[in-house]
Design a protein around this nucleic acid. Structure first.
Lengths: 195, 195
DNA sequence: CAGTATGTCTAGCACTGCTAGGCTGAGGCC
DNA sequence: GGCCTCAGCCTAGCAGTGCTAGACATACTG
């Protein structure tokens, strides 16, 4: 009984992950509007109700995909920051890594940052990987900087703006490098007094 | 015959606008997911197919709402810029006006900048009001600045990031003034050499 | 071997965007 | 004035959506 239920739980966990992966792949291939419960069920070779024995609904599946993405993003930003930890270079590397992440996996990025969600941000229940990703931005600034969090918040916002407007075709995709260079230069600049 | 068809055309135009306004109000009151063709038809007191004699589909109605918004946004940014045309103050005023616009009319802002659209941005077919809104940002920078467009693009992106992440609850709504002040200070700062 | 519990599926609900086809009433012509 | 035409509108319905109730089968338990 113990071994059997263990095996079942294992299979169940595998299927749980299978659903998440299938949703993610389908979204990446054809966009989130193509991810219907029917198509997803067909892809994992089960009937629709099986999805609902693992998740509360489609939103819940998308949330799971998003959380998976937060972990990957945090790892990627960390790697970028540690590759060149000198102050301005680190920020530049992290920002570039962020934009690359958004460009390479647009559907994943959408689930994380663009589609409606009830994942808590900047809150006690914030998923740790999400907090970790944000902290990578914070760590790019000097520890004695008392406004690091503000710096990080605005940097992240600006990157998200660039990523979101590019992805939806609202700003042209070329010239991304110039935008990145300019953004980092200004964020690390010393503001002229009296403004 | 002429007078009659003129009256008809007038009524038709009125109804066209009525649909746009109803969609906008409904979206603002209950969000875009509540704007269904049935509810919208009920609201304008016609049957569903009438909507399709004015617009190609729901997307087309949302596009019309968005374009209406571009005009209002452009006017608002222009007013803000001209109120205090001195260089850094103008940029600050325009940015604040942009964020206020996004906050006060979240559904309209969504239709303009967040929901999928096929409106052309930075393109020959770009709706003039949209181009005008962007030009308000460009005009905040000195005419001799050869990278004005880049400045404007990044400024706009950063504002959009702040607006989008705030609206979806991904960054907390308080502290918006600090973000605005910081952003404008950095955009107008002189970058330190050699970065 | 009977009974239970678990897991899965079929079928269906209420909704979505959208459209085909019929009806009605007003306009134009003799 | 009376007939015909036609534009405008509506009812009804299609295919698809997320989600669920209830039947069924399979596998474990006493």
């Amino acid at each position: 009984m113990s071994a059997i239920s263990e095996r079942r739980e294992r299979e169940r966990a595998q299927r749980h992950q299978l659903i998440i992966t299938a949703a993610r792949e389908l979204a990446e291939a054809e966009g989130w509007e193509a991810v219907t419960t029917r198509r997803l069920a067909e892809r994992v070779e089960y009937s629709q109700p099986v999805l609902y024995s693992h998740f509360h609904g489609k939103d819940d599946i998308m949330r799971a995909v998003a959380i998976e993405g937060f972990g990957e993003l945090a790892a990627r930003l960390r790697r970028a920051r540690l590759t060149d930890p000198a102050s301005p270079a680190a920020l530049h590397a992290v920002c570039r890594a962020y934009l690359e992440f958004a460009t390479e996996q647009p559907a994943l990025y959408q689930a994380m940052f663009m589609l409606p969600t009830d994942v808590k941000f900047a809150h006690a229940e914030t998923p740790p990987p999400l907090r970790a990703a944000f902290d990578e931005f914070v760590s790019c600034f000097q520890p004695d900087n008392q406004r690091r969090e503000l710096f990080a918040e605005v940097t992240w916002s600006a990157l998200h703006g660039i990523a979101a407007l590019t992805e939806s075709g609202r700003i042209p995709p070329n010239g991304q490098a110039e935008r990145l260079d300019f953004l980092v230069a200004q964020i690390t600049a010393t503001p002229r007094p009296g403004v």
